[in-house]
């Protein structure tokens, strides 16, 4: 266990930074290929607000010079990389004097919190139900009920979110419709605030859990059936062990391994799936930030937010990769 060497760590970190570098390059490249540009978007916005902008040509030229857009592309690119290394994404175009980092800094903890809770619940619940579905000793009634709960898997998360809002916020009024915490409340580390955060986070988290746990249930069920047919299960039964012990130490322990791999693979999708859910609930996370920025053609924010989401995903995959040898003894990164 813990068979991670410095050599492996170095190689894995290289891949990590390579991923981030390539994504950063794409984030930089795509707006330069796509139609429209930040400055004309800004001028358009000013025109909308003021009706007419005097000397717009001069303004455009002035900005171009200020943003360094007249420099050759390689110079711009290197400067961009330099900024990224210092995690400097400039200012928001839509909310001009606000730095991008400030916007992201406000939103990131909410997204990480919501995502962590939602994915943990989804993964644990999904695998637990999948294991029950495949286990021979599970009461038959439970085996009939679980698939019914998986109906939500086939609908998009936004519809689930709307459904939850309608039932639990509008009809029953159990949970608030929107927001991350009660309006007018000052973020503080006290019971009252935490309770409010949990109350506000329940429906967004639930809409993510509802639509994605079925994926894990089905995957786990399949893996459990495969494990069931393994020779070591046969021996485990012949040994006369406690059936619950056999369930978790022999079956689940082995069936869960590919599920963890799948978690690393689908993490990116899970993150992007949260964007719309956050927006629907006006949850003040990265999803809302990205959505608003796209609507406002707020290029710098889109760039910064995308970059952080990518780093977040890559980091999670890295962590899963590094803990994998601890859960599967057959995987070691040690060269003996």
């Amino acid at each position: 266990m813990g068979g991670i060497t410095f050599g492996y760590l170095a190689r894995r970190l290289t891949v990590f930074f390579l991923t981030i570098w390539i994504s950063a390059t794409l984030i930089w490249l795509i707006p330069r290929v796509a139609p429209g540009d930040p400055i004309s978007a800004m001028v358009a916005r000013m025109t909308r607000q003021a009706g007419y902008v005097e000397n717009s040509d001069v303004i455009i030229e002035g900005w171009k010079a200020r943003f360094g857009l007249n420099d050759p592309l390689p110079v711009q690119y290197l400067r961009y990389l330099g900024n990224i290394i210092r995690l400097d994404f400039g200012y928001s175009l839509a909310f001009f004097p606000t730095p991008v980092n400030e916007i992201i800094g406000r939103a990131l903890p909410w997204t990480v919190g919501l995502l962590l809770v939602a994915i943990t619940i989804t993964f644990l619940l999904g695998n637990f139900l999948g294991a029950l579905l495949a286990w021979r000793q599970t009461p038959r009634l439970i085996k009939y009920i679980i698939p019914l709960g998986m109906i939500f898997t086939s609908i998009p998360s936004i519809l689930a979110a709307l459904f939850l809002i309608y039932v639990f916020a509008y009809m029953l009024d159990w949970f608030p419709m929107i927001g991350s915490y009660a309006r007018g409340m000052q973020p503080a580390f006290n019971m009252e605030f935490i309770a409010s955060v949990i109350k506000h986070g329940t429906l967004p988290a639930l809409s993510i859990v509802l639509v994605s746990f079925g994926y894990w249930t089905l995957g786990m069920r399949g893996m459990m059936v495969t494990v069931e047919g393994e020779d070591y299960m046969h021996l485990a039964r012949a040994k006369g062990l406690n059936p619950f012990y056999v369930l978790y130490r022999y079956m689940v322990r082995n069936a869960i391994l590919p599920q963890v791999t799948a978690l690393a693979i689908t993490l990116g999708t899970l993150v992007s799936g949260q964007v719309l859910v956050e927006y629907i609930f006006s949850y003040q996370g990265m999803g809302t930030v990205i959505f608003t920025a796209i609507r406002n053609q707020d290029y710098t924010v889109i760039q910064g937010a995308s970059f952080f989401v990518i780093v977040l995903t890559a980091l999670s995959v890295l962590i899963i990769d590094l803990i994998y040898p601890m859960i599967d003894p057959r995987i070691t990164y040690e060269r003996k």
Binding site: D231, Y232, H234, A236, A238, G240, N242, R253, N254
Partner: peptide
Amino acid sequence: RSIRWIKLALIPQGAMNSLNPTM
């Protein structure tokens, strides 16, 4: 279950896969 292994033990076919790989 209480009789198993005390009275009747098994040396399985295909010992290659008869041990739990995670234990």
